[in-house]
Design a protein around this nucleic acid. Sequence first.
DNA 1: ATTACTGTACCGTCTGGACGGTAATGTCAA
DNA 2: TTGACATTACCGTCCAGACGGTACAGTAAT
Lengths: 194, 194
Amino acid sequence: MDLVTRQRLDVPARPTARAKILAAAADIARDVGPANLSLDAVAARAGVSKGGLLYHFPSKAELLKAIVEDHLRHFEEELAGYPCLTGGPADILRAYLEISMVDCARKTPPASGVLAAIVQHPEMMVPITVFKRQMLDRLKADAGEESTALILFLAMEGLRSMKLFDAEVLSAEETEKAVEALRRLIGCKAAEAA
Amino acid sequence: MDLVTRQRLDVPARPTARAKILAAAADIARDVGPANLSLDAVAARAGVSKGGLLYHFPSKAELLKAIVEDHLRHFEEELAGYPCLTGGPADILRAYLEISMVDCARKTPPASGVLAAIVQHPEMMVPITVFKRQMLDRLKADAGEESTALILFLAMEGLRSMKLFDAEVLSAEETEKAVEALRRLIGCKAAEAA
DNA sequence: ATTACTGTACCGTCTGGACGGTAATGTCAA
DNA sequence: TTGACATTACCGTCCAGACGGTACAGTAAT
């Protein structure tokens, strides 16, 4: 079984190396700024040699691509694994809201790594844009009113961008209040539809 | 020569060089990715030599700082210059919403330059964060309900981040619908307060 | 022996920015 | 008026260092 197949099947023989490198990249990006991410620094932080790093990721672009793909896959998985309690409408709205929140609350977000990928290779924004678009479509299909989906989506994107830039503009209380308001918005519209 | 450009920037007697450099930086950042902004490229695009560039901005960091400051100042000026029609409550909410929209609709947004500054020197996020926080406080003070200000703020941040990354997720119609919904939200709450 | 890696040494390129010019535009005293 | 010097605005070259990536020798397990 070669490396590529194993990665695809999610069955790493030594799961530590790849995962450690990805985590290290996010850390470094956060520390020195997403534009100043260097392979040397990532290798050092991950506890592997540069040769080792380049064995797993044959180029910097590949590493950054992997970060983006991991990020997207992870979000998708969490969303798919979210327990749909009611089975009724607005379930996806709710799941999206809650998953986005835990995603934002994560202590070491891989977001800085994603940011590094985007600013160094703008074309890596494409899969992210596609993902977001599909997400919005799902929200729209699930929402009673289009505007509900739009507002929820935009507000979550706002919250996400804040985390992305490490800008703690909203206090924890304010964030909670905003989420509460959005929950009300979703619930209200769902009740209308029912 | 360029009267329009000169008027947009306030004081300088010979504003051409400085303004051209700032504009060139935004263009280059957009073209090659915010992380790959180089002084050589900026100088070439601006039609000045590298020495000339470094005369106006003694270091790359100074150039990036100037981009951020210009951006913030510009937004603040537009907001201050917005005609307050009613003189009543929710005026700032409305002005913030409309100014944000024209700011987003701008054909050549300097946003890529700002992004370049942030990702190369994360500490440059600080003044932006402060600005956003003050903005939010003003919105909260003007809003009848706190949640209204929060939702509006977050949604606008979401829209802004979309433009920042050149991700056209929402169509023009969807954007308009979202803005309409937000206008309704503001108007409704203002009427309640009155 | 092969596979699956690690570690090191090195190379070419790019980049920030230091530096030494230079031409035009004041500024001011004689 | 003029010559002497100062300042402003800019040019073009050079260089040390950092970076991405390659080459290759080594190793431990299968």
